[in-house]
């Protein structure tokens, strides 16, 4: 759905459900996953429907993902880090933080 306007110089690599994804240093997890074209960041706790970010500025909470085992992280507010492991959030975050 999106393509880079500026080439990514020295990418860091993050992983979404095990798939390696190149990211621009300093960008948010949400920006990187949108560029990579993942079909959903989360599935809702009620209907299981897929969601992608809607507002990108921290208001809608549709970009919730699991980051390093911690569920319900706002992908639009968290910066990427080398080797970061991200998973699609399936429903509500479980007790102990995981999805």
């Amino acid at each position: 759905m999106f393509a880079s306007v500026v080439p990514i110089g020295h990418p860091v690599t993050i992983h979404f459900d095990g798939r390696p994804i190149p990211a621009r240093e300093g960008e948010t997890v949400a920006a990187c996953l949108m560029r990579a074209g993942v079909p959903a960041f989360r599935r809702t706790p009620v209907s299981g429907g897929p969601r992608l970010p809607y507002c990108m500025i921290g208001h809608c909470f549709d970009c919730l993902v699991e980051i390093e085992g911690q569920g319900s992280q706002q992908a639009c507010l968290v910066g990427v880090a080398e080797g970061m492991r991200i998973r699609l959030q399936n429903g509500a975050a479980g007790v102990g933080g995981g999805a």
Binding site: F2, V5, E27, R35
Partner: peptide, 11 residues
Amino acid sequence: TLLKAGQMKPL
């Protein structure tokens, strides 16, 4: 935000 901070355009 994707344009400014993600440097990307829609396809």
